[in-house]
């Protein structure tokens, strides 16, 4: 059976993580599945302006950066009960389809299989969400580079929704088409759905197993190559720079 690389980066500063993320996409490594746990932070999507999307006066204790893919804010509170993952794969029309929505569906399938394992009614909601009973539990973002794709996403185990609403400027247009009165009705998380806290490591292990089953591969723990480490060093200043974050 084919082996793909697996890395668990643990608790990280998101600026360092986004540099490694880009390095895995653009480096010499093979297909990779990885996890990280972000410290209190906000990651802006490529097309988002910080001053528009956030009340910056309330974000002073957050680390803020921007990623190279589109989509919305990835907000991490200090509960640190989010599983963040990345997948880098060569687009081949089989495991990683060329069609953008099909490829989201394929990778999001790992999250759906994981949630179904816990007995939940999980589904893919195009373009890039995974839902449980129509409530978003996972947001995902993809970009592509020279025949490869990078998909990042998060699975919420717990979420401080009031804190997110405090710091983010979310207009009503964002959720009105979902026929809900507030963003509160449109989100959920695993602890709430299960009525109990699951060990994060246990959930990560289920995800790993579901990934292996879906892609018919064995995941083997590895590290960044020297080429990827070099690229990470080159990308780091960008993720720390106000020109990139507050452009």
């Amino acid at each position: 059976m084919e082996q793909w690389r697996f890395i668990d980066f643990g608790l990280v500063d998101i600026r360092d993580m986004m540099a490694m993320d880009e390095a895995i996409l653009k480096g010499d490594g093979d297909n990779t599945f990885f996890f990280w746990t972000p410290k209190k932070s906000i990651i802006l999507g490529f097309f988002q302006k910080a001053e528009v999307e956030l009340d910056l006066s309330k974000c002073k204790d957050y680390t803020i950066t921007r990623r190279i893919s589109g989509g919305g804010i990835a907000f991490s509170d200090d509960r640190c009960r989010q599983i963040n993952y990345g997948v880098v794969g060569t687009i081949d029309n089989d495991l990683f389809p060329l069609d953008i929505i099909e490829s989201y569906k394929q990778v999001c399938g790992v999250l759906i299989d994981t949630l179904v394992h816990y007995g939940l009614n999980a589904a893919f909601r195009p373009i890039n969400d995974v839902t449980v009973d129509n409530k978003k539990i996972s947001g995902n973002a993809q970009t592509r580079w020279e025949g490869k794709l990078l998909q990042n996403g998060t699975l919420l185990l717990d979420f401080d929704i009031e804190e997110m609403l405090r710091i983010a400027n979310i207009p009503k247009e964002k959720f009105l088409d979902k026929k809900i009165a507030s963003i509160r009705e449109g989100l959920t998380w695993l602890d709430r759905e299960l009525g109990e806290q699951r060990d994060m490591e246990e959930v990560r292990n289920v995800m790993k197993k579901k990934f292996e089953e879906r892609f018919h591969v064995r995941l083997k723990t590895g590290t960044l190559s020297s080429n990827e480490k070099e690229l990470t060093k080159n990308f780091l200043p960008k993720y720390y720079s106000p020109e990139w974050v507050y452009r």
Binding site: F47, K49, V52, S69, G72, I73, I100
Partner: peptide, 15 residues
Amino acid sequence: ITISGDFFLFPEEAI
């Protein structure tokens, strides 16, 4: 003109 949003667009720099 300035735009801010949570859409997806490839290639991103084309915005």
